[in-house]
Design a protein around this nucleic acid. Structure first.
Lengths: 343, 343
DNA sequence: CAATCATTTGACAGCGCTGCCAATTGGTGA
DNA sequence: TCACCAATTGGCAGCGCTGTCAAATGATTG
């Protein structure tokens, strides 16, 4: 399909310089006389020379490419707008530094370090790392890599860029306390994710700080993206059976929150009059919800962006200490939260 | 960070065979004696040899990598779950054939053919191709490439895998006709997308087929993902001013539909009692809407999967005729559509 | 047992570029 | 004018692999 493949050598020949000089021009090396640069550039343009990046990478050992690993089992997560935004941020951070993305949806039998070992990338960004296979992750610690989620509470050798779920949960609780709520249900998220435990801790700490008692029945783990049926079931068999009843719900994520919203509406309750509901992530779904959902915003785009820059830094400087960055979360208040019903 | 980089040559030396033989083993070439294969494989495992894919690609001219281009200006689209699913399908199709994805969010000054010209990929998949720069797209026609959207009605040299928006619009209209609706508003989507025109044509054809008159005021172009404000404005200044008033709305996409749903609710109308609303794409948003949204489903995952397989076929066989595939869309009926109000 | 042919293996150039280091050029001051 | 130094430029090996084609091996047959 291609007519002629123009190489460095041909450009050099036509321009009457050495390959090395052409190489310098292509790579914007400063040590080329301006006259020479112009002449060579002219030939490059004339011949429509396109450098072969593979050859360049092979010779230099740098690929200017980063692998982004997405855990496959979490296909579902992938449809969640949050991920798309994260990827957008990663892309921006990398593109600004002339890096490309090699995207891989991880399959059961794939090795997490393969892309790097095959010399195809300079480093890896691991999103939603599986928490159930720490051994497989182990190899990543010896490689330039950044996780966008804490992989386990005790793991502290990994480079991590994550949102401050502890602080966010605390902020949410303050918001609800201020609205007069005293019985607040918390759906933490799954047991195996660090963020669930962080939320749980914040819940206890925030209550303690206000001198309020903690009712353990009000804190429950749940699967992310809980479906309507499960939520209905939990409402009927648990939450609404409690005495005193919770007057507010902190959901693990926006989808769970919206399903909760819809189930409550279906049962004849009014949000925020009867119950307040808070979501997490502040995805576009929050705006579309009815009523619009109060949600703790992860800076998803910025998180991706930061992860990218962090990785590039790790690649360049190989720090000995792990880099761990917490990003602020901000509570976006909409109409799903209001004053606690005066019982 | 790496201790030893094991090369083919070292494996060959240790195994006591030539490099070429090791290469054959690595690439599963059939013409290797079983005994030799086992011995070599043993050494490969022992030394933990990892082939250098760059070197392999450089020598062979095949990268086993496909570029996926995402138009940057459509950042917004990217947060739309549809895209994530599409990407998931692309990934599946490619992974099954041992291809990887080089993902690029296109920036204003990027060349669409660059990745290929730099020999980094064997072909390209172009999602949401910009329709306003046909010249830049032109180069893609001489390269193994597949578009996931019709780039322009008249362009017929490109390989395209798209959903059958014409048929889908017709199906939606049938559904609404059957429910007794006779005044149906159509928000086609933007002028510059082929799908808008296809929907418009289906609208006219479906009416004609039933012997119904077409009221041009009921068909309007709109931006995808119309925001609540715009929708409110259009309702107040246009749709609700018409006589007779439309009793049903076909929205260009799920987000527009949901915003419409919320605006109508905010104005005190009941859906589906007062108005029926249909969305497009059947994203996860449809389920979360209140009431759940009737929506025409693009097989987003399957579309990506098909696009991937199509591209691999194009790469392998360089067909002379462009490949154009239409994927069926299915109407998923939920609670946002009902019988037309008996006026 | 030699001739024949299929199967298996090997030698080596070369893919297109960059790193290293040497060679050349041009300008300066004595 | 010549030594001297900085700024440019060039030569060439080699990155790790595969393609081509030749060589060696082994099986089969008359």
């Amino acid at each position: 399909m291609q007519k002629h493949i123009v190489t460095l050598e041909q450009v050099a020949k036509v321009a009457g310089v050495s390959m090395k000089t052409v190489s310098r021009v292509v790579n914007n090396s400063p040590q080329v006389a301006e006259k020479t640069r112009d002449r060579v550039q002219q030939v490059i343009d004339d011949l429509n020379y396109q450098p072969n990046r593979l050859a360049s990478s092979l010779a230099s050992g740098r690929t200017n490419t980063v692998g982004v690993l997405v855990h496959h089992a979490v296909q579902q997560i992938f449809a969640y707008p949050f991920f798309s935004e994260l990827l957008g941020g990663i892309s921006k951070g990398l593109n600004e530094n002339r890096y490309d993305i090699l995207l891989r949806f991880m399959d059961g039998n794939m090795s997490y370090t393969e892309l790097f070992e095959h010399r195809r990338v300079d480093g890896l960004i691991v999103t939603n790392a599986p928490i159930d296979k720490p051994e497989e992750m182990q190899g990543l610690l010896d490689i330039p890599s950044v996780f966008t989620s804490r992989i386990a509470l005790r793991n502290n050798r990994s480079n991590v860029v994550d949102s401050d779920f502890y602080g966010a949960a605390w902020t949410v609780l303050d918001h609800l306390f201020d609205l007069g709520h005293r019985h607040i249900a918390l759906m933490t998220g799954p047991e195996h994710l660090a963020l669930s435990h962080l939320r749980g801790r914040a819940y206890a700490d925030a209550h303690r700080a206000r001198g309020l008692p903690v009712n353990d029945a009000l804190v429950r783990a749940n699967a992310l993206f809980a479906n309507p049926h499960t939520i209905r079931h939990d409402l009927e068999t648990h939450w609404l059976q409690l005495a005193p009843r919770p007057t507010a719900f902190i959901a693990s994520d926006d989808i769970t929150a919206i399903n909760l919203l819809n189930q409550l509406a279906g049962m004849g309750y009014n949000v925020p009059h009867d119950f307040s509901v808070v979501g997490f992530d502040n995805t576009m779904l929050s705006d579309l919800a009815n009523p619009p959902l109060t949600s703790a915003a992860q800076q998803s785009f910025h998180k991706g962006y930061t992860a990218a820059l962090t990785l590039l830094d790790v690649i360049a400087h190989e720090p000995t200490e792990p880099v761990q960055i917490d990003l602020d979360m901000e509570l976006v208040v909409r109409q799903s939260t209001g004053r606690a019903p005066s019982s």
